[in-house]
Nucleic acid binder design. Structure first.
Length: 284
DNA sequence: AACTGTCCCTGCAAGC
DNA sequence: TGCTTGCAGGGACAGT
């Protein structure tokens, strides 16, 4: 599932491959992918426009354009962005295809595909001046752990007067943006904190552990190009798999021995409505 | 306001 | 073997 490290890996690929290039033509297959506006709005908003930059906030990709608008792409559960040669065979569930002009004499024309079997993802062109109205979810996103400066003290303030447990808070995109189910479990394991702990009862040293684990796990995962699992086949823009799944210590390891403490077993439960894995011994 | 549960959707795996 | 069922999960939405 694309979470912050996977989206950041895709963003870096886009930075290398599409920034500076002009969109010549846009095809939209499934209407559902452009449900926030319409097929016409996407095609009109992108045709003849140059991509001047690609940013990321949480799991949201935001493309700068040389028009007055911006483009947002969210991969949700199963979305993928793929760069390909013009006319190459498209995978099933390719819902949007953008034809990109060559950037210079050395760069051939390309196609940028949005592929998404489960169709939860979306592609939308919006007006940044109307972001509150058109993109309320993006406008109200919380702090990004790798873009914004987060400290244990900031975590304490974010968690103040919150009733939910630690895992629910990590998954809440209005507080901290970019952490999903996999990285929430990995972060909590490295912080040695149980997912069902209540934030009000955390002392500053626990908050410092959580903060350090968050930064470390996310940075290491970006370094590894994200996590590629068996089911969703996450790959980056150029089709490369990630390798952070090899460093997972709890996610998908239910019933196995904890490699960190060597004693505990990894338990699988349900916390905050999500399948949750944690070590019975090292997380307290 | 803040939290929880349900839904959207497809592919895959387990179980009969 | 071939069917059915359940599960995966990000975020919108309804209900509490």
């Amino acid at each position: 599932m694309p979470e912050l490290p996977e989206v950041e890996t895709v963003r870096r690929g886009l930075q290398r491959n599409v920034v500076g290039r002009k969109i010549l033509r846009v095809e939209v297959g499934r209407e559902r992918t452009v449900r926030r506006t319409s097929r016409e709005a996407l095609i009109d908003g992108l045709t003849g426009v140059r991509i001047t930059g690609v940013g990321r906030r949480g799991k949201y990709l935001v493309f700068d354009l040389d028009s007055r608008q911006k483009m947002m792409i969210h991969l949700r559960m199963s979305g993928r962005l793929i760069i390909a040669k013009p006319g190459a065979t498209r995978p099933a569930h390719t819902h949007v295809a953008m034809h990109l002009a060559s950037a210079d004499a050395a760069t051939p024309e390309s196609e940028l595909w949005f592929v998404d079997p489960r169709t939860f993802g979306e592609v939308v062109v919006f007006d940044p001046d109307e972001i509150e109205k058109q993109m309320p979810d993006l406008a109200r996103l919380g702090l990004d752990p790798l873009v914004d400066e987060i400290s244990p003290e900031i975590l304490r303030r974010l968690f103040k007067n919150r009733r939910g447990n630690l895992k629910a808070l990590l998954l809440n995109q209005h507080l901290i943006a970019g952490i999903g189910n996999i990285y929430a479990d990995e972060i909590l394991h490295r912080a040695k904190l149980r997912p069902d702990r209540l934030p009000g009862r955390l002392n500053l040293s626990s908050l410092a552990q959580l903060h350090a684990a968050m930064i470390e796990v996310l940075n290491n995962a970006v370094q590894a190009g994200g996590s590629t699992l068996k089911d969703t086949q996450y790959v980056d823009l150029e089709g490369q798999t990630g390798s952070f799944q090899d460093e997972h210590r709890v996610y998908g390891r239910g019933g196995m021995r904890c490699e960190t403490c060597g004693k505990g077993r990894i338990l699988t439960t349900r916390v905050a409505g999500r399948t949750t894995c944690y070590c019975s011994k090292c997380q307290r």
